[in-house]
Design a protein around this nucleic acid. Structure first.
Lengths: 332, 332
DNA sequence: TCGCTTCACTGATACGTTTCAGTGAACCGC
DNA sequence: GCGGTTCACTGAAACGTATCAGTGAAGCGA
């Protein structure tokens, strides 16, 4: 470990005969003559000087980083979302600090506060518990952009909200139109998690449509949901269709179906939610969200807010239906 | 934005009648009496004090964070790897700062240096260019653990190396045994990327096995590899098998095959590399790596190295073959 | 009782920047 | 030629912690 010490701003100041303050200003193009800027730039390049991000963060309170707090990175679609946001931020010369709440509201709280302490300039969050009180405190001290569900407390900078009621309605109506009555619903919700508005809506809509539904928590991993699905499919009164609240859960159902020697859609219909790229290959009929549009909107809003241009916008995403082959027409 | 100011160590010192230094020591359980520790803890809790991570990083040079520099997060298996490492680190009360080189050696270099400047305590890297010179400088100033290929320059703390030669041999021998002679090979390598040792080995092995191969760069995204595959499959002398250097690429081939109205394995055999969870559902025959073992090893090694317990270990991962249904036996 | 060690703690400085409140010079209109 | 601005820059004080080099007191053996 024989690394030579990094050059500091003081050394650049010495080399140019300026004060450290002048160098600091010059490198950020503020309040100094054009000629000085050039001189400082040259000296900095010569010494291999680059401002220390940690010292800068301590002094200025800003880091250039955006926090991304994901609901559950076990979910493949959320992985895509995280990767997309990371890339979009990089294109704007910002960096993402990605954390995973793993579906746990308590962890979500801890990590959110930790991100604030890390001086992220803004926070994009896909809330596990949109009704938690601490969001209010958080949104007071930094710009928060919520994706998916809007935060109930706190003055968020912006929201990219999914019209989940519409999505649920689309999915359930589609299944009903295909002749399904006995429908299992698999959600990613954990027992400890507060009820999501979408979950509540499922029950109301099922009632309205005359569906006989059975809502279950499918866990976070592929193995979890496969296990739950296996239990469901080996029962005597097996549902004719399964509506999965994420494509990842649907993949677990496919796994269980294959292991039981059954077939989709001949023995059971499967309906997804999200439209992950793999769903096209599997022929999964699913509710589609515009991933790219969501990424762009969230990044644009959080970057704008972190620069003080606070527009306070609410963008609503509308779902589409991707009809493939996992739901057979004409059952019963 | 009416947040009240955070408590500082000085206020805790004032409240307990101690010096800031004593409080700093007490909270880390060093050099102070048990009674004082309790008193300080109580006062800190009362004031809601928590040490500022940025100030701590500046003063101590450490952050508790581990950098994770991925080769290309477009790849689904690498996404799984990143998520797994993030979770494993969290279980050790460390946090991952995840960055994506997106297959670009220049970006890899920039990001690696940036992570060092962020004072990460260690770096896990899946190198795009293992032969780059800058790794030497980097490994001099912080513990680096390489995954996949070993770094050629620099004294890394540890390596979790894949036996890619063996993996390639397994895949190509399998295809030959199934009767394939005309084989396309799709690699994730970019034009600007230096040749990976594995790519070189492919050519040597193909020669040895008497295979007629056609090596092509398949890009990073699903759409990219689907495009390349489509070009390949519409030629007159279409290959009878495609060996993909990642499962993600294989998924792109499946997409192209479906769009052309062809079928796997009837019209073309497909062989993957990695064994992503989705490959089981698709029936993709592939070379398997022990993801969980890799994650655990890398995390254990980097955490140990960041704590100064430098063992300098080299762990070699051996591949397995997951035989499924994407390669039909008895061709020609 | 004396010198020595250990213990619990203090004061000061370092970490490397940003930023606030000037400061002197040049420039302006009148 | 004079008050007022603007310009380009400086000095010093943050930012909040860790850590080094003490320091006085207590404890100890002989």
């Amino acid at each position: 470990m024989a690394q030579r010490k990094r050059a500091t701003i003081r050394e650049v100041a010495q080399a140019t005969g300026l004060s450290p303050a002048a160098v600091s200003y010059a490198l950020r193009g503020m309040q100094v003559s054009e000629e000085t800027i050039q001189r400082v730039r040259r000296a900095a390049a010569e010494l291999g000087y680059e401002a220390d991000p940690i010292a800068r963060a301590l002094a200025s309170g800003r880091t250039g980083m955006i926090g991304l707090l994901c609901g559950s990175l076990e979910d493949l679609w959320q992985q895509s979302l995280a990767v997309g946001i990371g890339r979009a931020l990089r294109d704007k010369d910002r960096y993402a600090l990605i954390l995973d709440a793993a579906g746990d509201p308590a962890r979500e709280r801890t990590l959110a506060l930790q991100l604030r302490d890390q001086r992220v300039d803004g926070l994009i969050v896909q809330p596990v518990d949109p009704a938690a009180r601490f969001w209010a405190d958080l949104a007071d001290s930094l710009p928060v952009v919520a994706i998916g569900d809007a935060l109930l407390h706190g003055h968020t900078a912006a929201e990219v909200v999914f019209d989940n009621r519409r999505g649920v309605t689309m999915a359930l109506e589609y299944l009903r139109d295909k002749g399904h009555r006995r429908v299992a619903v698999l959600t990613p919700t954990r027992p400890s998690t507060p009820d999501r508005p979408a979950d509540v809506h499922v029950i109301a809509e099922a009632e309205r449509l005359g569906l006989d539904i059975d809502v279950r928590s499918a866990g976070q991993s592929l193995a979890d949901s496969a296990g739950v699905a296996a239990g469901l499919l080996t029962r005597a009164d097996r549902p004719t269709a399964v509506f999965c609240f994420s494509d990842s859960i649907a993949y677990g159902v496919y796994k269980a179906v294959a292991e039981l020697g059954l077939s989709v859609p001949d023995d059971v219909a499967v309906m997804g939610y999200d439209d992950h790229p793999m769903s096209e290959l599997l022929g999964l009929t699913t509710v589609n969200w515009d991933l790219d549009g969501i990424v762009r909107a969230a990044v644009r809003l959080v970057v704008a807010a972190s620069e003080g241009k606070t527009h306070r916008r609410r963008i609503v995403q509308e779902p589409g239906l991707r009809e493939r082959v996992s739901v057979r027409p004409g059952v019963i």
